[in-house]
Amino acid sequence: MPNQVLMIVILAAVLLLAAARFFPRLQLRTVLTLALLAVIGYFLLITVAEMPLFGKAVNPAHNEISLRYLEQGVAETGVINTVSGIITDYRAFDTLGEATVLFVAIAAVIATLKSH
């Protein structure tokens, strides 16, 4: 990992010098922005490469929670639509946040449009 970081820094410095040499009208700020974006993009790509593969059995999404919902859901929530049981009972607080998002959105629309 330190080798990679060092490599990135050296690469960025070389690119910076080359850009300053070949494009004299290029501003330092632009070059620095591009270099920063490249670094951020590099780390984002590393994160994507580390993500679990789609549909693999050992993924963290395949745990005991979905089994619990499917086996105990009807007894614990009293509804036969398990999706509804999840979103309005197990995760009712999350759905309240969702409703709040709608409320804030419509309040913002009214505040923006009614003022003109």
């Binding site: 929530t77 009293g78 509804v79 509804s84 049981g85 309005t88 009972d89 009712a92 759905t95 409703a99 709608l102 409320f103 959105a105 419509i106 629309v109 009214i110 449009l113 009614k114």
Partner: peptide
């Protein structure tokens, strides 16, 4: 009539979403 609070919450959410759509459309 089953599920305790779930149908009540669903009705409230339905009211809210319907009026949100209508209000958004009318205001635009």
């Amino acid at each position: 009539f089953s599920g305790g609070a779930i149908p009540v919450i669903t009705v409230f959410v339905g009211m809210k979403v319907a009026s949100t759509m209508v209000t958004l459309f009318y205001n635009l």
